[in-house]
Design a protein around this nucleic acid. Sequence first.
RNA 1: GGCGGGGUAGCUCAGUUGGUGAGAGCGCAGGAUUCAUAACCCUGAGGUCGACGGUUCAAGUCCGUCCCCCGCUACCA
Length: 702
Amino acid sequence: MKPGTKRTLVTAALPYANGPIHLGHLAGAYLPADIYCRQQRLTGRDLVFVCGSDEHGVPILLRARKEGVDPQVIVDRYHKMIQEAFASFGMSFDFYGRTTDPLHRETSQDFFRVLAKKKTFTLKTDSQLYDPKAGIFLADRFIRGTCPNCSYEEAYGDQCEKCGRSLSPDDLLNPYSALSDAAPVVKETTHWYLPLGHFQERLTQWIDGHGDWKPNVLGQIQSWLTDGLGDRAVTRDLPWGVPVPQDVAEEAGVDAEGKVLYVWFDAPIGYISATRRWAEAQGDPELWKQFWCSEESQLIHFIGKDNIVFHCLIFPTMLMAHGDFILPDNVPANEFLNLEGEKLSTSRGWAVWLHEYLEEMPADYLRYALAATFPETRDTDFSWKDYQARVNNELADTLGNLVNRTLTFADRYFEGKVPPLSHPSSKDLGLLDRLREIPSRVGELLETYKMREALAEIMGLAREGNRFFNEQKPWATRKEDLRACGNTIHISLQLVASLSILLDPFLPASCASLRAMLNLRGLRNSALREDKEALLFWEDAGRPLLEAGHSLGQAGILFQKVEDAYVEAQRKKLKAAPIQGGSGVQVDPNQVPEFRELIEFEDFQKLDLRVGEVLEAEKVKKSKKLIRCLVDLGREKRQILAGVAESLGPEDLIGKKVIVVANLKARKMLGLESQGMILMAERPDGSLGPLGAEGPAGAVVR
RNA sequence: GGCGGGGUAGCUCAGUUGGUGAGAGCGCAGGAUUCAUAACCCUGAGGUCGACGGUUCAAGUCCGUCCCCCGCUACCA
């Protein structure tokens, strides 16, 4: 932390309001941020934690069109879902906002206006393809047409899926809009650009002062700086987003109609607008400035690695250009979380959705399992088996059992009161000494974003507690030396009390229960900015907290074990998800593409469809999409290339029976010949899944 | 293709600026114990630190080449 810091503003990446929250999101940004904030609040530091839904952008607009509803309907749906899931998960945001908030619009426009006034932007006019029917400009991938290379009629404007050739929209024959089927027209349009290059020197200087940032973050930044920074468009022609301010447009002599701020420009400003909303709620609308505009404040962004460039270069450039704001002091980006050994894929349904998890299991179990394996230095893996092991072995057995054996012993043999510490042994004092150094040690780890190590340190303390209990044998001394027995229980209780503070950032709900069992009151609330009742703070975890004679509360089981059946069910659900295409959202009839024009029966008869069994499948090297399959068609075995690697792995195909177009002309791709085509089902998001088939290889499908 | 990060015990992961016999948790094997959620505690087996080459008295730790995974970015065929 830089010297003289009085306040901290923490942000967690704004989730995109186009789908629910999954485990990858939590492990990447949200949970680390929450743990950090809770611990900092416990130390008494002044901290505000904001986040919110990112609700603009093209994907939301397209989804709305497909469903035939206003985009606001979409974002309302997911904003609510996300916000509720976060709350149940124990996220301690001081404010959770959204970018469709009018105040956000105002904040973004003001920001844009300041940069325009300072002549930060450059204006450029370009020709772009425009869909006259849908009334919007089209990004390359929303233009489709016939591939000039292979004559595939549904090639995208940036690439032909059939032959893999890269294209530009101009290359397509008979181009049409993917949104409305209308033929696109070329139209000139003017946009504002942020010239990042002008800030290169200042950015470099600023980054050089932050050599302590994580290596993955610095590496990414360095590579961008070395390449040199270019201009980035900050506006778009879209009917959904924060409108370009009328006055700025007029000043520039540009028609503002239909122009909005590019989503990446307005999204990070969401951090600012959320802080403003929070300040309003505090009854002091100007309070946000203390956090954003004072050198006595530090700003920390928790994000995933995919967001590094935006938070470390682009947003800082915006802040620099504006001039009123402080720059981030750290951007502790995490790597990614894999799931059961494979990378997460929302389109394939390879994800665990937070809202679904919370219907069945406690938030703290997941918080623990994730925190124990945060992808801090590299991608890590989450598996349900590991989750079960973490909960059962560590939470229940190590920690829960320590609590349980200590409390039941006190309850049974010391009338539920804390026995006095009298003539403590060196072992007794040794543990108290050990305890003394823990809060600052763990605090330091957390402040340097080493959450996993911090958690391991605390759990190590719980293990020491168990060892101490074993070695002191209070069940034996109870009969021979009641004083020594009392000392053992006294110390063990103090340890448990300290754990209820140390673990609070990680397991807020369980620690609250634990403190109730101990009848320990007065700990500062780790979820609130202010707690006037607070008597105990983080550092107090280093000293004995329970006085002799203190009456304990009702003991109970802190953590239930996770059954095998649950683990199996979860894994099964995961396996089943790709087939159902399930992002947990019901298929909407409006999302299903319209049927094509009628054909004659003879046309259909030309197709020779067969059942084929995939014998081998492997990724084609140097291709992102192609999988080479060897398919048994009864009469012969064929090599068929399928452009599905972005949706499926080879293992999803091997051994599967599929439907094959057997009389399709062979075509070469990347030097390999494809002798046919495997039929796939396309999901609304464009991902693919194989069509299952039964029957012997070679059987005619009709 | 370019750039960045990573490839360490059966599994999931730690390993500061190169230097005493390469670690933790889980799992496994054996032992001890009974206060406790069949929990806890002790001991042990297990690794040519992605591959190859180099620098050095000394490399998991530095340099080079290659392979694989993740991310960002680009686009020739």
